[in-house]
Design a binder for these strands. Structure first.
Lengths: 221, 221
DNA sequence: AATACTTTTGAAAAAATTTTAAAAAAATAT
DNA sequence: ATATTTTTTTAAAATTTTTTCAAAAGTATT
């Protein structure tokens, strides 16, 4: 399991990333400024660092340079839209990738996964396989009994989320907040509809998504 | 695998080159001044040397002359824009090529590759081949069912990038950032258009580039 | 068994994304 | 300087996906 260090001075940004990182199956810790980040990198072994550029105390680039002096960890930088940054400067300081705020958490996780694969920090692909269902998170492919299944974006997102949280009771609220990324406190049946579609895609394994009446759903894997 | 010696007194320039060289699959070592470079060349077998002209201790030209006394390694010189240098002087000292700073790393790597091929310091070629599609990264040639296919520069870049990251879900953002080298967080359809062109070039294999709706694309290889 | 409440379904409407083709702009070669 | 090629932009068309809605089915409780 890969370990991520999330560095940002804004609490809520950290929380969002943290949340997504966890449900992607990563272990994650936080730091709220550059100095703290450098210190934590010195004392722990992270597989990748996600760091904001603009921070009090010590900005992202400087922290990056300091970290690189003692450890060669992949680093992804976050920059606010319009904030000036410069790719070359990034390369100089050893940044591996950039993501512009506001970012989609899914997008960010895709990049994390890509870098971890590339750097071979985790040579093995991110794959789940059990009882006829196989999910290749890196390639975004789902197999049922060895056959590829096409899904729509939301369907993938929803399924990936459930698989990553397999055997856990997930409340409707939690699923919606986590997969849709915001609350639509609607009284609509969007989630149900998606579950229906997903179950259809799962064919004879539709029963692996169990309805928890009054609560939500659980994927059994 | 070819081995490169990178000589520059500026750490960050070395890092940039190092990064790209590694990305291209070369092995690379560094020296920070002429004296050190000469010494390292004496003790190791490099296939090519990339060296800055202006350096403390011993400048590039002088180092070049010294190296040439005992070994005939191809040498590429880096000179700052506007910095005075003299082509004739270069030829006298046995320089094989010049690149002016600030340079495009890709450009530099192309020259490295060109020289290595020319001098026949043959390294094993970087080639991908699978199911009717063959990509010679070194020669920048694409074959479909054995026939050469002409592509425009961007088309090559895009295709190479996708092939190097085969079977990975690549987000549009990531592709654009990585291939174009900057973000246009615009709303234009540049990438789509290039994908279309690329697919056309791939003929009956156009389906190997799969659209991941809401995400991006994936090359299947 | 009746009631109240949830979930499932299918179909239609609405929204979003990708593909296309063609023109404009930029870059390169002649 | 002019012609040619490549890249980007644009806008419309095609496609796919998401959401909504209302009826049907299912479950727990009384």
């Amino acid at each position: 399991m890969s370990k991520i260090l999330i560095v940002d001075d804004e609490e809520h940004i950290r929380q969002i990333i943290l949340k997504y990182a966890k449900f992607e199956g990563y272990e994650a810790e936080e730091a709220s400024n550059g100095i703290q980040a450098v210190e934590m990198c010195r004392q722990n072994n992270y597989d990748i660092v996600i760091m904001d550029i603009m921070m009090p105390e010590l900005d992202g680039f400087s922290a990056c340079v300091k970290i690189r002096k003692f450890k060669n960890i992949p680093i992804i930088m976050l920059s606010a839209r319009g904030e000036e940054y410069d790719r070359i400067h990034g390369f100089e300081t050893g940044v591996d990738d950039y993501v512009v705020k506001p970012f989609s958490p899914r997008e960010l996780m895709l990049r994390v996964s890509a870098i971890l694969n590339r750097t071979g920090a985790l040579e093995k692909k991110d794959i789940y396989e059990n009882n006829g269902i196989k999910v290749d998170f890196t390639g975004r492919i789902v197999y049922i009994d060895g056959n590829r299944v096409d899904m729509s974006p939301k369907e993938y997102d929803l399924f990936f989320y459930m698989v990553k949280n397999k055997n856990i009771a997930l409340s409707r609220d939690k699923i919606i907040t986590d997969v849709w990324g915001y609350d639509f406190y609607g009284i609509d049946r969007t989630l149900d509809t998606h579950i229906k579609i997903l179950r259809k895609s799962l064919g004879r394994y539709s029963g692996r998504i169990v309805t928890l009446r009054g609560v939500g759903y659980r994927f059994e894997g």
